[in-house]
């Protein structure tokens, strides 16, 4: 097997519009002698989910895409970051392809959106929201996986007493009960609620 190397190209900009700021970047990677880790699935004749340790070079794997990240601040109460990523790839034929061949970038979505926001409800009391959209992508065995959206929410309160700083927070992850998988076959839980407490002195 030959060592792997890559030419990487990137262009980008950060533009500050005062109320909001934007970062945009485009990238193109051309990987020579890509060492393909196709070692997890093998032909169905060997049994479902069976594994082996096959690695091989692929002459060229090209990855390209763009990122857009925007932040907004409204007064002292609200801050949010939203990001969007688009990515694609292409793979040279090796002659070793089979119906069960897959490539690691196949398992990642072409389109992804993340949102992280905070809102100060009252002094030192912050409502937090995190949400992600992940587009359709493939599993190792080539089956399509549905897109999903998840949302986590939380509230954190800090307060000071007798020169000590206390923190208490509650959260609920996947608060909408989305039925989704990040890795094919691994169901994610719904309504994961909990709390955190802390003290500093």
């Amino acid at each position: 097997m030959d060592p792997e190397s890559a030419w990487e190209y990137e262009l980008g900009i950060i533009q500050d519009f005062k109320v909001f700021t934007v970062r945009a970047a485009g990238w193109y990677y051309d990987i020579d002698d890509f060492i393909n880790d196709n070692g997890i699935t093998i032909p169905p004749s060997e049994g479902p989910g069976a594994g082996t340790d096959c690695l091989c070079n692929i002459d060229h794997v090209r990855l390209y895409g763009g990122e857009l990240e925007a932040t907004i601040k409204l007064g002292d109460r609200f801050r949010a970051t939203a990001s969007y990523v688009y990515q694609r790839h292409s793979v040279d034929d090796t002659g070793y392809e089979h119906g069960w061949t897959y490539y690691l970038p196949d398992l990642l979505a072409r389109n992804k959106v993340k949102l992280l926001a905070r809102y100060m409800v009252w002094e030192d009391g912050w409502f937090q929201l995190s949400s992600r959209y992940v587009d359709a992508r493939e599993s190792q065995k080539g089956e399509g996986m549905d897109p999903y959206i998840t949302m986590d929410v939380g509230f954190e309160q800090k307060f000071r007493f007798d020169q000590m700083e206390y923190m208490a927070s509650i959260f609920c992850n996947n608060v909408t009960g989305a039925d989704y998988e990040e890795i094919a076959g691994y169901d994610m839980p719904e309504y994961v609620c909990g709390f955190q407490v802390g003290v500093k002195f």
């Binding site: 030419w7 262009l11 060492i35 690695l55």
Partner: peptide, 19 residues
């Protein structure tokens, strides 16, 4: 400008030939 930063990069990278 004070509000606008642009950049471009090109590089050749090497990977330890591991799995």
């Amino acid at each position: 400008t004070p509000e606008t930063a642009l950049y471009a990069a090109v590089s050749r990278s090497y990977r330890l030939p591991c799995p």
